[in-house]
Amino acid sequence: MSQVEAYKIQSTPAVYVYEGPLRLWHWINALAITVLCVSGYFIGSPLPSLSGEASDYFLMGYIRFAHFAAGYVIAVGFLFRIYWAIVGNYHARQLLLPPFFSGKFWGGVWHELRWYFFLEKEPRKYVGHNPLAMVMMHLFMVWGLLFMIFTGFALYGEGKGMGSWQYEWFSSWIIPLFGQSQDVHTWHHLFMWAIVIFVIVHIYAAIREDIMSRQSLVSTMISGWRMFRDNREPDDHYLK
């Protein structure tokens, strides 16, 4: 390594983007989503039947418990995430309130789409999320998660029974809205697959852009620091 190169690496600017609580939320959320998808799948299509006395086992009970517990974690985490969007730093607000009224933002979405279709040679440089990522995360992790939390509590409230707060707040109006309980089950199940698709794309895009773009992604969600490959002006400075 030459003297000049060493100097360049040292002077690569880094920005503290994701604060501790937000990173913790991200990883807890990721874990909860994994537990929910796996346990949810096995609620819809249970494991092979066990033989013997019913009193010897509680397999379906444990699977459902894992699902409900992780569901509460997601729901409480979501409330915390809203709180953190208010008290956290500037970047914490991007997930909930993307700059949908900015023309430059949609230009950025277009650029990212072209980038993914290999039509752009140069990636742009972002301190926060790239605009396409912001759209995806807003759709799936705000509206998608809200849909799952609401339908999830509606289904959970059915078991808790009339009179429980879960039933009164969620089941009592969501189930008639969809038609009947079976419809809510089907939609809840379909959205599970939507979340799985998001997870595939999210992990792939994060690793790919970590390698191919101008900034770090995966390590940023661990350390909080965004590292850059060059000293160019970031392309999302207009957001400030």
Partner: peptide, 11 residues
């Protein structure tokens, strides 16, 4: 219901 909670199903 106990068979459901136990994970015992007609296949």
């Amino acid at each position: 219901r106990p068979h459901f909670d136990a994970g015992q199903f007609v296949e």
